[in-house]
Amino acid sequence: MGTRWSVRLVVPAPGLVADISAGVQAVLDSVVAQMSTWEEASDISRFNRGAIGAWQAMPPDFLTVLSAALRVAEESGGAFDPTIGAIVDAWGFGAAGAVASAPDHETTETLRLAAGWRRVACEVLLQRARRTDTLALDFSGIAKGFGADRAAAWLKNLGFRHFLVEVGGELVGEGVKPDGQPWWVDIEMPPDAALPPLRLALHGLSAATSGNYRRWFEVNGERFAHTIDPRSGRPAKGVASVTVLHAECMYADAYATTITVLGVEDGLQFANRLGLAAHIVSGDGSESMSLAFGAMLD
């Protein structure tokens, strides 16, 4: 995933920590082996190389993420779309590596028209999926959150009930700290925004943040950020960061990306329609929050 992970938890005996570390790493390695476009042997890379129209057998976790991604795509009218891998590569934010200049309009239009979440079929019970065009899947907007969920589930299966999992900034908090306090976390604000860190209490909650100020490139004074709007085939503009709270980090991750693409006004309408707790920082440094997020402050 190109990032780090950490876990804080209450353990009955210090000697268990080494085994826990190895176990969490194995869980995340499994997610990478299925969902990383940077790995040629991964399941997602195999899917993207497969014959157009042919069903491919895929592992359960892969199909769980694909099914969730297609659900968010439908809910958002395509503002979130896991089929834009080729567009992400064209802008230099994928496994193909950086680019010296922005792709031209003809290139992005060709790739955009070949993509589209409706061109992917996912049958979870039959453990298979297929594509009907030359699109490429990309789970960058959802896989880290899923990894945090899987690490948390692994800890729960071992009997742990009090922990904080973090994978590249995506967070899952369960139970409480030994002093009875919830897992307090500070979400950093964009550097150009004169806002204090967003302090959250995670108790049976996940938090994911999508920020457009970390990965970008500039050409002739114009900045292009890494979050791509599937509807235009170009980088999204207008939003600096979005944090979403949700019971599942996978969905918090995907919804944060979605709202970043939709922008402040449409993003708030989307969050309120689905009852999502969302905090938005716009490009000018102002902040907005959904009704559900505001209710958590009361």
Rank of each mutant, 00 (worst) to 15 (best):
G15M: 08
G175W: 14
D179T: 03
E39L: 11
V239W: 03
W184V: 09
V185K: 02
G53K: 09
A207H: 09
G263P: 01
D186G: 11
M189Y: 08
G2R: 12
G77V: 11
G221N: 06
T107A: 13
A151C: 06
A148T: 08
A86T: 08
L135G: 01
E109S: 12
L195T: 09
Q127Y: 05
G77T: 04
M189C: 07
L262H: 00
A96I: 02
L171N: 09
S286N: 10
A148F: 10
F224R: 13
G141R: 14
R214K: 11
V99M: 06
A102M: 13
V72M: 12
G173Q: 02
V124P: 07
G238K: 13
S76T: 03
V88R: 06
A152P: 03
H162I: 01
G263E: 06
H105S: 14
E74W: 04
A102L: 13
F293E: 14
V264M: 07
G168H: 06
D19G: 15
W38V: 01
P190E: 07
G77W: 13
L198I: 04
V10K: 03
K156V: 01
D43W: 15
R118G: 00
R46I: 10
I187R: 12
K156T: 09
A193E: 04
A254E: 01
N48M: 13
S206I: 07
S42R: 12
A207D: 05
G23Q: 08
P197T: 13
L195M: 08
V165K: 05
G85Q: 07
L16N: 01
A208K: 00
G238L: 13
R199F: 07
S21P: 00
R49P: 00
L195E: 10
A129K: 00
A208S: 15
H226C: 07
A102V: 15
A115C: 10
R46W: 06
V124W: 05
L164V: 04
G145I: 09
L198F: 11
G263R: 08
